[in-house]
């Protein structure tokens, strides 16, 4: 099986490349693509190519590398100083472009990493959200808006829908072992501000669980459509914070953020309703169809 991974030099790119190469069973050849310089050297089961998913030249890859079975499109950019338009080009157009190429060159499966934030945090959210729930995340935040748009493009992309399986993995907020990511920017210090009087149920997922979900989505042939990917942690937000070795600090809302700008770090601008209302997901579909079971 030949797998093309975009964003292969990123945090999850590296982890996933490693996981797929060392996976037992049928051998997986990995082709990694990234705009950044790569420091890992390729060998016979691994090849690194420099490339940009937004550029037309990326098509050459499909012409020169032979038949590719699976595309895992991890390339995205959520740096806070990115302009709204640049963010859209990378995260939405990049996805659309790769989808088009994958379909054109007979790729069997396209895997896209989405997030449970696409559902949005609303006061009337169900206790556990299923995959067919409308994507009502806050479009005022560019990273959320682009996730939703890319997710919708993957859901509704139809030209090759009968030949190519499009898999959308909606992971809950990720806690990276090595640090970094939106969740870590929020839980920066020892004391983590939460809203006084609000303690919704919250889910987080660890690196190994995310990688396992991607591995299964790559391996299971019939994987198709959107899957919610929760982790084994499902508890109130305050307990999650304690679980991560920090202390929740209940504050009135205006001391936590001002119009979406976090008061405790300039690096975070987000929709803070995610601390107020639940947006927990139901992982039954991934359990039944992918055999993904985090507990």
């Amino acid at each position: 099986m030949r797998v093309l991974i975009t964003g292969a030099s990123g945090y999850f790119g590296k982890l996933l490349v490693h996981a797929l190469r060392s996976d037992t069973g049928d051998k997986i050849d990995v082709i990694g693509v990234d705009v950044r310089e790569t420091h890992t050297r390729g060998d016979d089961t691994m090849k690194f190519v420099s490339g940009d998913t937004r550029k037309k030249r990326i098509e050459d890859l499909f012409k020169t590398e032979g038949k590719i079975d699976v595309v895992i499109h991890l390339a995205r950019d959520s740096s806070p100083d990115l302009s709204s338009d640049q963010s859209m080009m990378t995260n939405v157009y990049g996805t659309f472009h790769m989808l088009e190429l994958a379909e054109k060159y007979g790729v069997k499966k396209f895997i896209f990493p989405s997030s449970s934030i696409v559902y949005g945090a609303h006061m009337d959210n169900p206790a556990l959200i299923k995959e067919d729930h409308p994507l009502l995340g806050n479009r005022d935040v560019k990273t959320i808006r682009d996730r939703i748009e890319a997710d919708l493009i993957c859901q509704t992309y139809s030209p090759g829908a009968d030949k190519m399986n499009i898999v959308i993995l909606r992971t809950v907020p990720i806690w990276r072992t090595a640090g970094g990511g939106t969740l870590a920017r929020y839980m920066k210090g020892e004391l983590v501000p939460v809203f006084l009087g609000f303690d919704p149920m919250f889910q987080i997922i660890y690196d190994d669980e995310v990688i396992e979900a991607f591995r299964l989505a790559t391996r299971i042939e019939d994987a198709r459509g959107a899957y919610n990917i929760p982790g084994r942690i499902f508890m109130p937000l305050s307990k999650v914070i304690k679980h991560l070795g920090k202390k929740p600090l209940p504050l009135p809302e205006f001391l936590v953020h001002k119009k979406g700008q976090y008061r405790w770090s300039s690096q975070l601008r987000f929709d803070f309703n995610y601390l107020k209302y639940p947006f927990c997901v139901d992982g039954t579909k991934a359990k039944e169809e992918l055999g993904y079971n985090p507990s």
Binding site: M123, D124, P126, A127, G197, F198
Partner: peptide
């Protein structure tokens, strides 16, 4: 505030279809 937390912890249910 507080009522929402009490409601969740005691297993009461927000009235939406799902």
């Amino acid at each position: 505030p507080f009522f929402s937390t009490l409601m969740y912890r005691t297993g009461q249910v927000i009235g939406c279809d799902e």
